[in-house]
């Protein structure tokens, strides 16, 4: 319990606006280690924007962000990545020029120490480092049920698999905070089932895992706590059971169905 409290990703009063439009309206969040936290809400609610604030892609106008008690404000994304805070992207962001294995290797490339000489010359250090990274990448791919696609290019894979590769890139570095933005989008039923199992397996006592997802079955089945976001504000926080029966949440989801 103590561990959960200290190794949490916290945001207090996060407010973000674009040209006067308030996208996030003073959010307080606490994503705890050892839990899988769900972040749900209708399209445009601000889920991705919150991710971007936490990873440093956007700098919120107000609020503080900290991990394990250490303030993160002002740190660039690269520095937050160095602290083990990684994410996947809603729109698959794999490099088409790199093989699948190499794309996954990018998740740990920042830990490499081989210098520029190794980059241009066949020095043992660089070669060995690459082999190690490739091995780690293959292991991560195998964990996600993709053992044979390492040498393919992302463009040759179906969208569902690309998404899994994207997740493999996020988890290969053994992150301390893992934020997944719609990991199940584009996956078929059996792929989603596999993903669910993988996410359960990934969860550990010192990992903060946050999942943004529109697939309610997935969210309800794996999450310990769920934040419901609407128009940049939390309308509910609680266990899946509490959220499912929350009137406001029901109204938002049913209401948005009515609109369509």
């Amino acid at each position: 319990m103590m561990d959960q409290q200290t190794h949490a990703l916290r945001g207090e009063g996060i407010a973000l606006s674009f040209g006067g439009i308030k996208v996030l309206k003073g959010l307080d969040v606490e994503f705890r280690a050892g839990e899988i936290t769900g972040l749900i809400g209708p399209n445009g609610a601000g889920k991705t924007s919150l991710f971007n604030c936490l990873t440093g892609a956007y700098s919120p106008q107000e609020g503080t962000i900290s991990y394990a008690g250490e303030p993160l404000n002002g740190l660039p994304p690269a520095a937050r990545a160095a602290k083990g805070i990684v994410r996947s992207f809603q729109h698959v962001a794999l490099c088409p020029d790199l093989t699948v294995r190499e794309n996954v290797m990018m998740g740990i490339a920042r830990n490499g120490t081989a210098g520029w000489f190794s980059a241009f010359l066949p020095l043992t250090k660089g070669i060995r480092e690459r082999e190690e990274m490739a091995r780690a990448a293959d292991a991560a791919l195998a964990d996600l049920g993709l053992p044979d696609v390492g040498d393919k290019f992302p463009g040759e894979l179906p969208p569902g698999m690309q998404r899994l590769v994207e997740i493999a890139r996020a988890v290969v570095g053994k992150p301390s905070v893992l934020m997944l933005d719609e990991p199940a989008a584009g996956l078929n039923n059996s792929e989603t089932r596999d993903l669910t199992a993988v996410l359960r397996k990934l969860a550990s006592t010192d990992l903060v895992m946050v999942v943004v997802e529109h697939d309610m079955d997935l969210v309800m089945s794996i999450c310990d706590r769920i934040y419901v976001l609407n128009f940049g504000e939390f309308v509910a926080v609680g266990s899946p059971g509490e959220v499912r029966t929350n009137d406001d949440v029901v109204r938002i989801y049913l209401g948005s169905d009515d609109d369509e």
Partner: peptide, 15 residues
Amino acid sequence: LLAKTHPAAADAFGT
């Protein structure tokens, strides 16, 4: 190469 095609992704992974 990653920074060329997806600067945000490269950023998020330390480049």
